[in-house]
Computed example of a mutant assay.
Amino acid sequence: MNSLKLPDDAILIPIDMQQAFDAAPWPPRWNDRVDENGLTLLAAWRAAKRPIIHVRHDSVEEGSTLRPDRPGNAFRPGFEPQVDEPLVTKSVNAAFIGTDLDLRLRRLGAETVVLFGISTDMCVSTSVRVGANIGYRVILVEDACDCFDLADGASGVVPARDVHRAHVATLRAEFASVVTTGEVLAALRGAEAA
């Protein structure tokens, strides 16, 4: 039985669902369902007429594939904000740092944020941690996140799936409720039925 409850003030925040992550120099990713699950969340959230705030990484680093003047900065197909959905741009790993995301959420009266995106161990994790530390109830949709194989500094590689698993475990222990796409869909259906 699904115990997830989504208050009316819950805001969906997709993080860095951008095209750059599909090509070099980015290492291999593990979650081949990240787009499917993310698009499912967006469609259900929109159907429920709930607010969405999109986050995009606009890198200021020379040569980054996420710079605004590079094709990789563009949203992955289907993840573009719709007309009434605001966009927050950032240049660091946390969606709350150097942006007006916190102000936007407070003006909406939001206390709960539902996050997903790329990558689990970097911008998603950092945003979850900061969001929790400044007082939001954070819900992480772990199967709508993805991350990359990670060099371990000792000539080895930590597989992306293991990186994801470790970060989700840490976030669950201290910073967020961790759920699946299916649990969010069930909670949305339950809220509509109530």
Rank of each mutant, 00 (worst) to 15 (best):
N2V: 02
L4M: 09
S91V: 06
L171P: 00
H167G: 02
Y136P: 11
V124N: 00
D100H: 07
V60L: 12
F21A: 00
D149L: 06
D143I: 01
T40P: 01
I11D: 01
D146S: 14
A94K: 02
D152L: 08
E61R: 13
E85I: 05
E62S: 13
L188I: 11
Q19R: 15
I134C: 08
P77F: 02
G135I: 11
G98M: 05
V113L: 12
V158M: 13
M122I: 14
V130Q: 12
D9H: 14
V179G: 01
A193S: 14
M17P: 02
A193Y: 07
L41Y: 00
R46T: 03
T180E: 03
D121W: 01
I11W: 01
V179T: 03
V130F: 11
P68K: 12
L105R: 07
D84W: 08
H57R: 04
D22H: 13
I52A: 05
D8V: 10
D152M: 09
C123E: 10
A110I: 05
L66Y: 05
T180C: 05
V138P: 06
S119L: 10
R50T: 08
N93H: 10
A110Y: 04
A176Q: 13
W30T: 06
V157I: 15
P68L: 10
R33N: 14
S64W: 09
W26R: 11
F79R: 09
L101N: 02
G153A: 12
C147Q: 03
G135A: 11
R107V: 08
I97Q: 09
D8A: 15
H164S: 00
L188N: 01
L87V: 11
G38C: 07
L108T: 05
L115E: 03
A20G: 15
A187V: 04
G63I: 10
S125A: 15
V179Y: 00
D143S: 05
S59Y: 06
V130G: 08
F79L: 06
A160I: 12
V178F: 04
I134S: 08
T180W: 02
G156H: 03
E85N: 02
G78K: 00
E142C: 02
A144N: 04
A191E: 01
S119P: 06
E192L: 13
G190C: 07
R70Y: 08
P28R: 15
L66R: 06
